[in-house]
Design a protein around this nucleic acid. Structure first.
Lengths: 258, 258
DNA sequence: CGTGCGCTTGATAATGGTCAAGACGCGTGG
DNA sequence: CCACGCGTCTTGACCATTATCAAGCGCACG
């Protein structure tokens, strides 16, 4: 039997309000955690000029696909997106989950083709930033240039953390780490740190963590039996944060530092 | 019994010649595969001004360590370097091997501290580029800015490839992939594609590939029994490139695209 | 009220880790 | 030049974790 948790996701009324109003970086509610933060307020208008606000994507649609020509990077405003690559054997490898205010698509810069696909896990909206415009603007705004260097540097570092997790940690530690990360991600977004809604399937989680679906499922059950989590399908309640941290250590991909 | 392979590494005489002469980007023999390539030749002097050429590092010394303040990025000129992080549990996680003309240290940009350590596997020389100078120069030289965006993008992509390798491939496939990568790396450097000298230990290889030393060793012997490689300690001879590619697929971290 | 997909659970098997011992190779010092 | 010793590599035996296969459950959706 499923117990309905309190609303932990976006507030629908607010969402609609945002979507209805004419959007610009100045009145966007991500403002405080988003890109324009690094710019002097009188320069946000330049950024506003090149950003294409409010592109929306239905659930399970692609924002871009591996091999598509790279033209823009994207900032996620609402919803959730998974990034994945397709292996030579035709298997899918999930490389990351993205939440509001995060920047996607920068792995396409190196050879002008997207190196991964981005598919929405639920209805999502993004801002699109044409990359050549961004580069031009960056030469004029050292802050902006620096911000993007930082952003990419962080993604490199997060990749290294995931590599470490995959090669050194057990199934239990991997799942615990992910839950802790999502909790931190919620906290950053001013949502509950103890109630996590998972927009992705067990298969996606397993794929991301290098585990089979079955192992993910078993691990959830086990963490529940240990009294660390309570699992209601895609709603996770963290009962023992310290216990979770004890298992996790390492790996904090969603504790963004910028 | 060990059979001595032909010289496959750097040519000592040439090395010494380079080290003796006054170095600058214009007369550096990496020239054609290195950073200045992207600059108009009359602008190389600006880069030359900020680069500190020819810093040398003894075997097993650190170029920088995790947690050190981030000030510069480095280009490896000769030798080989491994990058690694230390996990919370105090274990080492090798995140990459670097060879001449590759750029190190960019994971430190995001929070001004190096996110990994870099230790030389053999006597090495590097060029040091103070990052703030580089950023300043980048605002004036769009090509340079673009080059560094590409470089970091590529590192993100390579991280994703390693992640895929770790979560989807068997021990055999991982080792085969690494050998193929090193072969490609040699080829890029105009060295033999079939004779590979491994500057790193079996332990480093295992650590990088998420395997135990024993498994790495067993895998080498197995690949040898299959007639794909011949293993003389740290000298590897590739007997069947196609067979190796067959096992590898995926994962080409050293086939740099820029 | 079915039908199907996603999730859970159980039984079994395989890959690779761990522990232990021995071989080899290299540098040191006699 | 050889003997020694240590560190690295290899090999073997055993074991643990997790994948795979299989079946059943439950919720969502038509």
């Amino acid at each position: 039997m499923t117990i309905q948790l309190a609303e932990v996701g976006e507030v629908p009324a607010l969402e609609q309000c945002i979507q209805a109003s004419k959007v610009s970086c100045s009145n966007c509610r991500l403002n405080s955690s988003c890109l324009p933060l690094v710019l002097e307020s009188d320069k946000i208008m330049y950024l506003d000029d090149i950003i294409q606000h409010h592109k929306s994507i239905q659930k399970n649609q692609h924002l871009y696909q591996e091999g598509d020509e790279f033209r823009s990077v994207y900032i996620l405003r609402t919803g959730a997106i998974k990034a994945y690559r397709t292996t030579d054997a035709g298997l899918e490898q999930v490389t990351g989950f993205y939440f509001p205010s995060e920047v996607l698509g920068m792995d396409g810069i190196c050879n002008n083709f997207h190196g991964s696909s981005a598919k929405s896990l639920e209805m999502a909206t993004v801002c699109q930033i044409p990359f050549t415009s961004l580069e031009k603007l960056s030469t004029k705004m050292p802050n902006l240039q620096h911000y993007f260097f930082q952003l990419m540097s962080r993604q490199i570092k997060e990749g290294q953390q995931l590599i470490t997790l995959l090669s050194k940690n057990s199934a239990e530690e991997r799942v615990a780490s992910l839950m802790l990360s999502l909790s931190a991600c919620n906290a950053r977004r001013k949502l509950s740190a103890t109630r996590i809604r998972l927009p992705m399937s067990r298969a996606d989680i397993g794929n991301y963590l290098g585990l089979s679906v079955e192992t993910v499922s078993r691990t959830f059950t086990h963490l529940q039996k240990m009294g660390i989590l309570r699992v209601y399908n895609k709603e996770i309640e963290v009962l023992d944060t310290a216990g979770l941290q004890n298992l996790a250590r390492e790996f904090k991909p969603y504790e963004k530092c910028g």
